[in-house]
Design a protein around this nucleic acid. Structure first.
Lengths: 245, 245
DNA sequence: TGGCAGAATAATGTGCACATTCCGATTTTG
DNA sequence: CAAAATCGGAATGTGCACATTATTCTGCCA
């Protein structure tokens, strides 16, 4: 006799978390869309008014974003959109290189059939995005490729870590060159890396990943952002803290 | 009403940040000292009373600790000391292996004279700690060794990342086996690694680091913590949110 | 006219009171 | 007697009002 009496409300996921995450996502989205330029000050009352939420929610979201490295806070001064130095970007890519070359080497050593299928499926998706000239989708897929590699290692900590690193990598040209998204990464590189992994050629895979990341950072370094303030109402036009489709 | 107070020109660095950091440090210290066993619920009113600060400060510190992975929060339930699975510990050490083998390889390739001197000095310090049988100091030095390697790479991002990883690694046996600190790491391993780095033998250095970390995780895996609740007043005996000597 | 001092204003930081939710003990009923 | 429902107390979540600090504006003086 089983006992279905257990009223295990698996995940209520209250409005609390939902609203907080919505505000957090709204600000993050504005940054990813390049609406908020480096140096912009994020005033709590203004955000509260624009996003139609209480100042406390804005405050909480800002603190979280600061802690995750998206924003910079100065005590009693305010919260600002950071101006990432080229050097910092280089450092982040350097760490990524350490991790991701190790990742592809490991995948060469112990990847299984489902992993191979997911890799091939991803490359296929990227190719299709290129054909249909869907730049937005291609940009998303380019990032997800690196996440996918980490996830295929089956290490949750590794995935989370790399996810953070990747968001911080992309933040730089999200903030500085949002209009140049279409150029971001050569999907051809990804296809070659996958091919090397499937061939279990660890040395080649690591080399390809190294070159790929070096190419990305070099491409980013060639571009310097023009400092320019922006109005918050403009930045959050069309972005709401409420659930959007 | 006027306030003829003299204006402070320097950095007052108000109680805000100081108090917040003090509360944060107090809880972290209690965890590192093994006073808070896995599964313990950290009640905000109790902490507020014990640490003599307002509940909001406790709340803020708890949120930060949750963000950094020290604690786990369940909405509307409370904040808990996590029970790290052996598997999670393995994953963390796996990531550390990826990073640290890359680090020693890089140091073999491009370390300079001051770096070599710092390495030798550190090994010397560890040796001296062993001789004087100072277990507490040796424990600290063992952790700092890995931090030192990261810092010698000159990559700030890398240092911060590894620092977080290391604290999370040590948290496991801080929580589960605080009385076995003295056994933590063989300083002999560190000396061998340094020797390989100074000899610029990248392959050997990487192998030694790999074995070192594998040995650590294996040693930790052999020990399982006994679940046991604890009173907060006991845990924070002698630990204050105020600056202590 | 330019720069400095002081006040007005706005933004950030903090504590408090209240609403909501959860846990546990007691009671009631089949 | 046992299981379930209910009610009371406590802990968490949230908005608000106030204190503190920074910024800007204005007027005065060199």
């Amino acid at each position: 006799m089983v006992q279905p009496r257990k009223k295990v409300k698996a995940r209520p996921l209250k409005g609390d978390v939902a609203i907080d995450k919505a505000v957090y996502d709204a600000i993050r989205r504005a940054m990813l869309m390049g609406r908020l330029l480096p140096g912009t000050k994020l005033r709590e009352p203004a955000l509260s008014r624009v996003l139609k939420v209480s100042r406390e929610r804005v405050r909480k979201a800002l603190h979280r974003l600061v802690h995750e490295g998206w924003l910079e806070a100065v005590p009693n001064r305010g919260t600002f959109v950071p101006a990432l130095t080229i050097e910092e970007v280089r450092e982040i890519y350097d760490v990524r290189t350490m991790l991701e070359t190790a990742i592809v080497q490991r995948l060469c050593a112990e990847h299984d059939l489902p992993a191979a299928q997911r890799l091939k499926a991803h490359v296929s998706e990227e190719r299709q995005a290129v054909r249909s000239d869907d730049r937005g989708r291609l940009f998303g897929l380019s990032g997800e490729f690196h996440i996918l590699l980490a996830e295929l290692c089956g290490n949750e900590q590794l995935s989370r870590l790399l996810r953070g690193l990747l968001t911080r990598s992309t933040m730089h040209f999200s903030l500085s060159a949002p209009e140049r998204f279409h150029n971001c990464a050569g999907p051809h590189d990804h296809a070659d890396i996958v091919k090397a992994i499937l061939a279990r050629d660890a040395k080649k895979a690591a080399k390809l990943m190294l070159d790929h990341l070096l190419g990305l950072v070099e491409w980013q370094s060639a571009w310097q952002p023009p400092p320019n303030p922006v109005a918050l109402e403009e930045a959050f036009r069309g972005i709401s803290a409420k659930r959007q489709a």
